[in-house]
Write a protein that binds this DNA or RNA. Structure first.
Ligand code: MN
Ligand code: MN
Ligand code: ZN
Ligand code: ZN
Lengths: 138, 138
DNA sequence: AGCAAGATGCGAAAGATTTTCAGTTTACCA
DNA sequence: TGGTAAACTGAAAATCTTTCGCATCTTGCT
């Protein structure tokens, strides 16, 4: 269960951490903002402050349990670290998110970085557009 | 000169606008934060407020004169709109920025979006790493 | 020159995230 | 099982970047 992952991450097992990890795992949505997590905690009648939510998410990120994403506009969103990298397609109207991986793109990035003498540490690719549903909706 | 571009953009020619456009054109750096522009104005003894800098940059963006980029960390940066799209390679140590365009990547993005029924409106690709110089520096 | 629309500068406000701090909880061991 | 140091927590205050509100100037045009 959650306790083990938290312990393995080198963190003490506390109520906020267990609850937050639980929400990330079982809330249905894969990409949640700190605010989303906080609202879900309120719904569950947990007395956990927003500052703690940010703190815990940041610790989880440091421990490699979650990934933080900075999409355009407002808040960052967090998602469980699936272990494998992926990029995102985001609908600018309804917020729908589709994940994808494309080895051709990954390879080109590596090649381009090499051409310029860079050693890649990370990258962020986000494609914004209208999903099928939102293209029709008039 | 600057006056023409501003006028063509449908904006009144004012001192702040002329100065800011001038800085974007001749400051040596291609990617500047609002704060960078503001500091340069102070250096030139111009009495222009930071709020005006943000306002003008946003207007320039709306008029298509500049592009706003949201790289990791704090501030957005602005650059003159070169007319053609490009992505960025950013050194996480010294801040060096290299611009690039890769049609293979662009094509794959279009194909992937199509596969998922999305119509692309925009995209952001930023590769973070260490530039040649920073890899050696010990 | 004279005027109305549009801009500016300033301080205040906003929104997201982080820090501070005093009071709690957890992990560990006698 | 206690006893305790270290780690953690909630709430409020602080930061940081960007935007607003508004009284006061400028610009573009007669
Ligand atoms: Mn994802
Ligand atoms: Mn650029
Ligand atoms: Zn949609
Ligand atoms: Zn560098």
């Amino acid at each position: 269960m959650e306790n083990q992952q938290i312990k393995q991450a080198g963190l003490k097992v506390t109520v906020p951490r267990v609850k937050i990890l639980g929400i990330l795992e079982h809330s249905g949505k894969r990409h949640l903002s700190a605010e989303d997590v906080y609202k879900e905690l309120l719904r569950q009648d947990e007395e956990i402050g927003l500052a703690t939510v940010y703190r815990v998410l940041t610790q989880f990120e440091g421990a490699g349990l979650v990934c933080r994403r900075h999409f355009e506009g407002g808040q960052s969103v967090f998602e469980l670290n699936s272990g494998s990298h992926h990029d995102h397609l985001v609908c600018i109207k309804c917020g729908k998110i589709v994940e994808f991986v494309d080895s051709l793109i990954e390879d080109r990035q590596t090649a381009i970085a090499a051409e310029h003498g860079f050693r890649i540490e990370d990258h962020s690719l986000v494609v914004y557009g209208l999903c099928a549903g939102c293209q029709n909706a008039r």
